[in-house]
Design a protein around this nucleic acid. Structure first.
Lengths: 162, 162
DNA sequence: ACCATATTGTCAAGAGGCCTGACGATATGT
DNA sequence: ACATATCGTCAGGCCTCTTGACAATATGGT
């Protein structure tokens, strides 16, 4: 059912400190993404796929270029181009020529796309509330603060080198 | 470089409570998996892929059946079969007939596989230490406890229903 | 104005990772 | 003995993402 619910289940309990983080992070991401798609479908956006998230999350209301979008999502422009073309075909946004650059095209939300964008934000808020209801605001705040620090540290410009 | 480093970056800062969890979880998982592969390659296991984790983590030293393995990893036996065949070809383990069931085959680690299995556990411990060094033992403990509760709650048998 | 170089978006091809459907071989319960 | 379920496999397909190559356009130096 869930994608990789208990990857790492075996290795976990035997460690004194408890399960390794990866064994918690992975199923949580899977759950979050499933829940997000569920909420989106419930809001009438039943043709969005998991991969579209990279677009919905990184394309601001003002529009953006394909290459910028791909960069922000951490993937190639070709991969992003596929997602974008799909969403264009589905009526979520359109491509407009960039007035400042003849090569570039600006991706601009259509009405349906703007609604989907907002639905995504609303879904995030909803899921966040669900999480808070389970673990409490206090612990959640610690988690958020700690993971934020971790992300900053691990993704610092010099951290991964090369 | 990183796979989807800042998915959700855009939507984050504007929320009063801070960035949504998914914007932290996703890059952390990506980082963890990259780091794991790095450590494995450093230990001489440079032919393992991300997907192999499901095997390394869910196949105990005593061996296991394909179907069990697939179940534990949350994927189909066909998908797991592909991973297994690949690892068998690479000399990590072998298939033996299950003496108690003529249909089944037992997957048993070879020497190289056992070493890789241990290297995975060692890599987990190393990464865990790196994490602790960044955020401190105290916060890490809270994170682990909180996320554990979350995983239990979201993956309870009746939680996702239907 | 000209030209080398870099960048934008696209086409083509393919790998990787997963899925559904169908199947022979084997177990199991009646 | 026979119906039924399960084990592993073959076949085929979808989705996501990659590398390589390319025409069109920008940009900076001469």
């Amino acid at each position: 059912m869930g994608r990789e619910l208990d990857v790492a289940t075996a290795a976990l309990q035997r460690r004194p400190e408890g399960p390794p983080l990866i064994g918690l992070l992975t199923p949580l991401v899977a759950w979050w993404e499933d829940r997000h798609l569920e909420l989106m479908a419930g809001a009438g956006f039943d043709d969005v796929r998991r991969a579209h998230n990279a677009v919905f999350v990184n394309l601001p209301a003002e529009g953006r270029r394909l290459t910028d979008l791909a960069d922000a999502a951490g993937m190639t422009k070709q991969a992003m181009g596929e997602l974008v073309d799909d969403l264009v075909a589905k009526g979520y946004f359109r491509k407009e020529p960039d007035p400042t650059d003849g090569r570039a095209k600006l991706l601009v939300w259509d009405e349906r796309g703007l609604a989907a964008h907002e639905a995504t934000m609303a879904a995030f808020a909803t899921i966040e509330d669900e999480v808070a209801a389970i673990v409490g605001d206090e612990d959640l705040a610690v988690v958020r603060r700690t993971l934020s620090a971790l992300v900053r540290a691990t993704h610092a410009p010099h951290a991964r080198s090369t």
